[in-house]
Amino acid sequence: MGVRDLAAAQAVTRSLLGKLIGPQGIDALAKSEDVSAAFAFLERTAYKEAMAGIPRSGRVFREVEHALRQSLIDDAIKIWHFLGAAHRRALTLLMARYEITNIKAVFGAIEGGEDPRALRGFLFEMGPLARVDLDRLIEATSVAGLTEALEGSPYGKTLDRALDRYRAEKTLFPVEVALDLQYFRSLLAGLEKLGGEDQRSMLAAVGPEIDARNLLWVLRYRFNFGLEPEEIFNYIAPSGLELTDEMLWNVARSEDPAEIASALPRDFGALVEKARQGRQLDLIHLDVLLRRRLWVRARRAIARGPFSLGMIAGYLIVKRIELDEIITVLESRRYAMTDAEVAPFLIHQG
């Protein structure tokens, strides 16, 4: 496997990469006066296709957000068609996060006493990347029914165990953590199977995300949830690219931002320092900073491995972050926030 097998998929990815609006586009979007102007701006870009399915009159914000995010999955499906079997498996594992989002949404609806069928239009259509039957999923009326619908799927066993805790603790937290962990473990195991240059290039793109996720999870569990380090350590994904278990263990035991920063490699430490407010850590700001770092790394993965599988993963990450920014800007227009208020949340300005 290599350049030859990926040539067509890379050509498609490159064409999709050219359709992104980029930081300049985000800045231009941020100049929109209100939500309608922002929607109109997007209709002049490649996102026009994504928004085409939504009637112009009476656009619901949630529908637009969903359609934009769905466009990322549609891109992945386009690329998937041009890949060989092993690469397809890797892409399916990478995109499984959206299937997991679907499952979490249905869980949430059942937990909140809503009819999951009402969610149908807001679940991501995974096409050939699907590993669960969405229609079967939304027919579930109880957590037990949902588990039954997921039986035999890659998520069945994970949920089996998590549900024991869900029943005992009456919170979806263990279910969500179990699904997230499974996502990263399966992804890394899948990359391991790919081996060679494919694995290396994918890790260059995906690894920084795992690092960022692990760091944020540890900090949230520690400071927001007050969990014991021993418990936290079990909730983090296998090591990503730079943050080792040792470092994360030390972070989990740290008491203040200075201690956290010293436990991490220099560039992570600098980000923690930047997000520090006295003895407190602004986790939202740190999240933005980490996502910016991820964006930079993903761009680097595209530039350094233009003919690798990592380039495709890099594109998907870059587009996801662009979508996050677009949605942030749309939200800001919706709630009439000023430019100064929204700027700290914009990843490329962070």
């Binding site: 024991d164 263990p174 014991e228 021993e230 079990n234």
Partner: peptide, 14 residues
């Protein structure tokens, strides 16, 4: 005991 239980809980111990 509580720390061991926390670790075991995190590992979805049954």
């Amino acid at each position: 005991e509580s720390r061991l239980r926390a670790a075991l809980k995190g590992a979805y111990f049954k």
